[in-house]
Design a protein around this nucleic acid. Structure first.
Lengths: 234, 234
DNA sequence: TCCTAGTTACGTACAGCGTACGTAGTGAGG
DNA sequence: CCTCACTACGTACGCTGTACGTAACTAGGA
């Protein structure tokens, strides 16, 4: 009748240690660190429960005592890297604070390119995510708005960083995995687009293609876009 | 020496028919339709090359004549649903047009919940994506800005829709897969958060938790956020 | 016209995945 | 001290993407 609760619980609601039985050999932090290392070095597609277990030095199925589903492993990873945020005492300028935070987030995603792929379905509120949110609310103290709006702002900044950096990463990844040089890729890309546009079905795209020269510096674009987003909440 | 080009080409650069050999039994559109159907009905995780082939009625490996890598299947799918946009003659009010477009995009993602998961790494410019971009440029004719800015606007709108709807979908998916009612989930969630916050480490979150009552209507939130984003480009 | 080379079709096979399940050992709570 | 939740982990299943080999087919060049 009582039994334990049905399966799909948030991992953070589980106590890390229950008291009964032998004490766990690894902490969540150990596991997260191992997983992050593998994802950093070999890419997120190469991350498997087997590899994490191997790196920890335990049997594959032992890992399932700590991490009920692979999805929860992602949750651990996101929490772990969220701990990398340097969150000092915020100033009164919430715009500057949010912009600086966005830059931190971008740097983090460039450091851990798998983050955008793994963050989207994250639903639980891990300790470090709570810490992050708490800091944001602190930084937004000088913004006179209801909490709902503040959360919308935080989500917007987060989302914008994610999509922007995702594009950056996709381009970089493609450049890396391609057998030819980025310049040649750029040229091939342009040639392909010009071929498509040549049919005359896309006159405005043709014009745009003619105007747009260099793709522009990524960080510059990032900053400009984020200023706009933040400005939308002033 | 000459040989064919090295592998990772954009699928749209491949001609659908080369002229030599027996004529293909299926079109890209056939394949895309089949894949979309499976993803719609069984979820994106259940989508496999085998299933698509089976639905088409051909051997698994035959599919690889049309779709060199599974990633390309995603590309076909995104193109296929991009064809669902209803793109009429735009008015002079670019803000209204972009907002309406965003609503279309949201509806599309609710119709095809796998879209956000699959769109991110899309890199190629498929026919329907070109059509979409061309239309956007048309709708933005009355906006006096360089093409670069217009593309940034389009990307921002797209990105915002994606992240917003992703959240919606995650919540909905969770509610669906959970063994208990959404109300109970909501309560459990709140209880968990209150438990975390009770420690006193997150005073502002505690306050926010006290204030925020109902989560608010999803579509309403969507519209509000998008108005803000679009407004940032005025 | 015929030959040939590129294409389609598809079965087999492999390495890898997430994870259900069963069993054995361990140690704290009642 | 007993009991039972917990840890540990090997085996096994069903599934995945796709490399590779073979056979049939057909349009272009000679």
């Amino acid at each position: 009748m009582a039994g334990r609760a049905a399966e799909p619980e948030v991992i953070w609601a589980r106590p890390e240690r229950t008291g009964r039985g032998p004490k766990p050999a690894y902490s969540r932090s150990d596991i997260a660190t191992a997983a992050v290392r593998i994802a950093d070095e070999e890419g997120i597609d190469a991350l498997s429960m087997r590899k994490v277990a191997a790196l920890l030095g335990c049997g594959t199925m032992s890992l399932y005592n700590y991490v009920p589903r692979k999805e929860d492993l992602y949750e651990l990873m996101v929490d772990a890297v969220s701990g990398e945020y340097e969150l000092g005492e915020p100033s009164d300028d919430w715009r500057a604070e949010m912009l600086a935070l966005a830059h931190q987030a971008r740097a983090m995603m460039l450091r851990h390119p798998w983050l955008p792929r793994v963050m989207s379905p994250v639903y639980g509120f891990s300790p470090n995510v709570l810490r992050y949110l708490e800091w944001c609310l602190g930084a937004l103290e000088s913004l006179d708005a209801p909490y709902g709006t503040k959360f919308e702002l935080i989500a917007m900044v987060n989302g914008t960083v994610m999509t922007t950096v995702s594009n950056e990463l996709a381009t970089a990844e493609r450049a890396r995995s391609l057998p030819w040089s980025p310049e040649r890729e750029q040229a091939a890309r342009r040639a392909y687009l010009e071929g498509q546009v040549a049919g005359g079905s896309y006159p405005r795209l043709a014009a745009a293609l003619g105007e747009a020269a260099a793709p522009g510096d990524a960080e510059e674009t990032f900053e400009r876009v984020l200023r706009r987003v933040i400005g939308a909440f002033a």
